[in-house]
Design a binder for these strands. Structure first.
Lengths: 144, 144
DNA sequence: CGTCGGAATGTATAACTATTCAACCAATTG
DNA sequence: CAATTGGTTGAATAGTTATACATTCCGACG
């Protein structure tokens, strides 16, 4: 169980249900097989920019200045696959979101949109031709 | 000194300088001639939708909870794109999930399934033709 | 190997925030 | 004019979160 994975699960939980306290969050994580203390959650939440609101924990707008695409890619991108007009990115577990955000910010014209799971990002391109272009460009980021 | 006035001053303070605790805020207000306890501030802040972040107290966007598709769409849908048999919906950050849920509930026959990220929903249709139909129908929801 | 340095985590507890309960006050009603 | 109701507030304190300090793990380097 990595920190990334844990934080990914935290994000999912916070998005999908109302969590009012860190202890409550710890319970939910325990149900997913993640043992974690309130202390660690306090640190995770701060790190992730999730704050406590009257309606439970919520994400707030992140600092618009994220790390560069190259950095994120170098750190997390494991594989790039082409499936028709969809490019599938495999990342280290829990990092798909960071990577998708970085890619979104690049605003490539070939890309219609992205959506991130846990360790996978789907990149929808307008057509097969442009997907091929994107595929090649992203491949160059993968660890040589 | 009315409650409204006090909350106005709180807003100004929170916008203009970094306030880390409610006691700190009470100090600042005292400097403006407003005597107030931590208890009252706790209530004021909740009422005003101001939350504690790692960078001090901040306003956050008032939060919604989700009625009809039309309403959800009107509120969150920013863009609709067609990429072969995938329709890509761009939403305001954090709303992709609500939107996907609303769309799922509609149970359109052209739609094979949806998957939501943070600000993007992929809508997989059975083929390009049906995707085109869905694309057009969804487009009608955008920015009227 | 040893050992140094940094990241991740936990325990104990300090610091901070929210709630409970009661008081007060103004407006309203019988 | 009581009595009642709804809104605002504070003292005490319950509940929640953050911090100080210690420990463990792991990779780099001599």
């Amino acid at each position: 169980m990595t920190k990334n994975y844990r934080q990914g699960q935290i994000l999912k939980l916070v998005r999908s249900k109302r969590i009012n306290t860190q202890e409550e969050l710890a319970q939910e994580l325990r149900a997913l097989g993640i043992e974690v203390t309130q202390v660690t959650l306090s640190r995770d939440l701060r790190e992730m920019g999730i704050v406590k609101t009257a309606d439970g924990y919520r994400e707030i707008l992140p600092d618009p200045t994220g790390p560069s695409l190259a950095q994120v890619m170098a750190e997390y991108l494991l594989d790039v696959r082409l499936a028709q007009h969809i490019v599938v990115l495999k990342t280290s577990t829990g990092s798909a979101n960071s990577l998708a955000v970085a890619l979104d910010q690049e605003d490539w014209p070939e890309i219609a949109g992205t959506v991130a799971g846990d360790d996978t990002v789907f990149v929808a391109c307008w057509d097969n031709q442009r997907a091929k272009t994107v595929h090649e460009r992203l491949l160059s980021y993968v660890n040589q």
